[in-house]
Design a protein around this nucleic acid. Structure first.
Length: 106
DNA sequence: CTGCTGACTGGTA
DNA sequence: GTACCAGCCAGCA
């Protein structure tokens, strides 16, 4: 099984704990495709699975990314999980980031 | 098989 | 800070 790239991505997104976020690149890497950030977005776009917290997947740098009304929907959803969102950017993005949780100045 | 598209990323201007 | 370009990968016509 596993042949499906999307199934792999969905599995990773499902593992994202609440109160944390991951970028498309992080999800791609965790799925085994460190360069398929774009392809991950394609999978998210088609994601209609309630078991997949696609709202926890954001763009790099802490930007919500997404498209259309996704950003505003994410903002409410993430906030409900304990994530503080600043306009179009996540606060302390590096601290709540998953699976790395970076916190260095560089 | 070929070409275009897209919920992306990083670098340069 | 914003704007544009080139590179990357999977899915679809």
């Amino acid at each position: 099984m596993a042949s499906s790239f999307r199934a792999r991505v969905l599995a990773v997104v499902r593992r994202i704990p609440s109160g944390r976020v991951a970028t498309y690149g992080d999800v791609a890497e965790a799925a085994g495709f460190p360069r398929a950030a774009r392809a991950v977005g394609t999978v998210m776009r088609d994601c209609g699975d309630p078991g997949v917290p696609c709202h926890r997947v954001i763009a790099a740098g802490g930007a919500l990314g997404g498209f259309g009304q996704w950003p505003q929907l994410k903002r409410e959803r993430l906030r409900a999980e304990g994530v503080t969102v600043h306009g179009q950017r996540v606060k302390d993005f590096r601290t709540i980031r998953w699976p790395r949780s970076h916190r260095s100045t560089v």
